[in-house]
Design a binder for these strands. Sequence first.
DNA 1: TTAGACTTCCATCAAATGATTGAATCACCG
DNA 2: CGGTGATTCAATCATTTGATGGAAGTCTAA
Lengths: 210, 210
Amino acid sequence: MTTPLEKARQDPESMKARILDVARRIFGEYGFHGTTTRMIAQEVGIDISTLHYHWGGKKDLYESVVVDINKDLRQKLSEVEKVIHGLPLSERLAISIDLTTDYLFDHPEVSNLILYRYFGKTRCEGNFDAIVPEFTADIARSMGLARDKKNVPPETTMKVLAVMNSIHNFISGESFFRPMLKVDRERYIALVKETLKFIHIPAFTQNEAT
Amino acid sequence: MTTPLEKARQDPESMKARILDVARRIFGEYGFHGTTTRMIAQEVGIDISTLHYHWGGKKDLYESVVVDINKDLRQKLSEVEKVIHGLPLSERLAISIDLTTDYLFDHPEVSNLILYRYFGKTRCEGNFDAIVPEFTADIARSMGLARDKKNVPPETTMKVLAVMNSIHNFISGESFFRPMLKVDRERYIALVKETLKFIHIPAFTQNEAT
DNA sequence: TTAGACTTCCATCAAATGATTGAATCACCG
DNA sequence: CGGTGATTCAATCATTTGATGGAAGTCTAA
């Protein structure tokens, strides 16, 4: 059985997929309450009723967007893990930061939506957040902080969260921070990578026997 | 001349001040679009028209909230700076993290609103963000990363932003992260401080001659 | 060609929401 | 007292917004 989301992804040109792509971006920029179905429909160039026909309602669409975002990020992280496998920790960190940062700058709605879900409330319920802990467990193992994915101690989860969040912050905050720094986009990306390495590599390599 | 905000702060029991306090919390939790004037009025226990009488409109109130938040944080940071003045860098960092974290856990709406402004868009304009750069310049000086408040290089601003944001993340994300970690509030606060020190102290002391 | 499904849009609804008006109430001062 | 200004609220308005129904269009298979 294929979920509606999988079905939408099979043909990227399908109306369903087009709506999903636009919805990712708009929801990411304005959050759940800041986004109207009319904004999304207009951006796609369709009527709102077409949107409702394909996705049911605003909340359903939003939930699909969140699931889609998480699926993408998870896949990207697993790609990154294959690249860094076997390298020394400091290199693993540096390469992970480079690759993840590049990916997220290309898909800022991923960071936007994740931060929105972390820090904002939605006045409606919705419970599909069990995906996040798995993320952190994967990353923890890949950083050599945990042997298996079960029983990762809170201290370790916190460290992983700190790393992930610091990346999302700079991606998502570009529109705020870059004017403040008065640098162009290319320079900003370089600064982000540099800063993330400056902050994180010493922390995780301080007790390492080279 | 006193601004409306200052006037409201003179008598903390005044209706104006009570509305402002509630508005801080609600705007912090749900963001600008997720908050309705009715939510705020109901929480205060008044009619919406009373709210409009004192603050004009939703946007005016929101802007006052943001200014108020920034004023509070700035004052707190200047208090912290006095405490840590003259100490060695690693201690300055540790104490700053402890004090700032304690303060923000007591006033989470500060972190909430700051993150909302960094990462979200508002569909309405609004331009009173010149306060942030000054913040970072103050912190940069206090961390020994800059001599004066003028001409702080982007690299330094980025480092300061990384530190500040990582704190805000854990404060604001408590409702998301703590259930995930399955720890009580006290333990969470301890974990936050521990993690922040683990991440940041090595980065900033790595090249220090003790 | 046609029957039937799938898709899209126009018109419209009901609820939510920001905002205003005018009347009532309160506080203070002569 | 009485009056004057400040404050509060009930009632109401106009717009926005999520959602729906039904007509029209499109495509495929028989």
